[in-house]
């Protein structure tokens, strides 16, 4: 059995940093009776001060960056980020744009300079993410499911 990252019920805070709302709609879909994330103790809270995990969507526009840092500072330790969608992971089609930071990996470097510690980051690729992939990420945090992807290095024989 894989290790549990968070043993208790996960209280999530939904943080949008300039997303197109595709991932946000799918996040709400997870909380409906059809997918029902409350089976795993997931509860949506309205303040980052109550949250264990922040559901992070969007490529982090420069305008939203100070607010994102403020929200993450307000979270109690241990704090976890779940980066939802390809915007939050790699910046999607805006990765080289002047007005976005371009993903959580780059945000973590900024947070390091600001002195904000993040205990763990989970990446959930998809554009937009399926509700099932969010449930799979929750199962990963709760230690129900096993990680499937791994870095692959293939060599083309000449």
């Amino acid at each position: 059995m894989p290790n549990k990252v968070i043993g208790r019920s996960i209280w999530v805070f939904h943080l949008n940093s300039g997303s197109c709302n595709g991932c946000d709609i799918e996040t709400l879909d997870v909380l409906t009776p059809y997918h029902d994330a409350e089976r795993f103790g997931v509860k949506l809270v309205v303040s980052p001060r109550h949250a264990d995990v922040v559901l992070f969507t969007g490529p982090i526009t420069i305008e939203s960056l100070p607010k994102v840092i403020r929200a993450l500072k307000a979270m109690p330790r241990p704090r976890y980020i779940v980066a939802l969608g390809s915007c939050a992971i790699g910046g999607n089609i805006w990765h080289a744009s002047y007005s976005v930071v371009g993903g959580v990996p780059k945000l973590l470097e900024i947070l390091k300079d600001e002195g904000v510690n993040v205990d763990g980051v989970f990446y959930v690729p998809g554009c937009p993410i399926r509700p099932e992939s969010i449930i799979y990420a929750i199962a990963l945090i709760k230690g129900i499911a096993k990680k499937k992807v791994k870095m692959k290095v293939k060599k083309a024989e000449p």
Binding site: V5, I89, P105, G120, V121, F122, Y123, V124, P125, G126, R130, E132, S133, Y136, A137, L140, A145, K147, K148, V149, K150, M151, K152, V153, K154
Partner: peptide, 14 residues
């Protein structure tokens, strides 16, 4: 689609 991971380097394929 079950591609969730805790390490960003898992998401690269070379």
């Amino acid at each position: 689609f079950e591609l969730a991971t805790d390490d960003v380097s898992d998401l690269y394929e070379l």
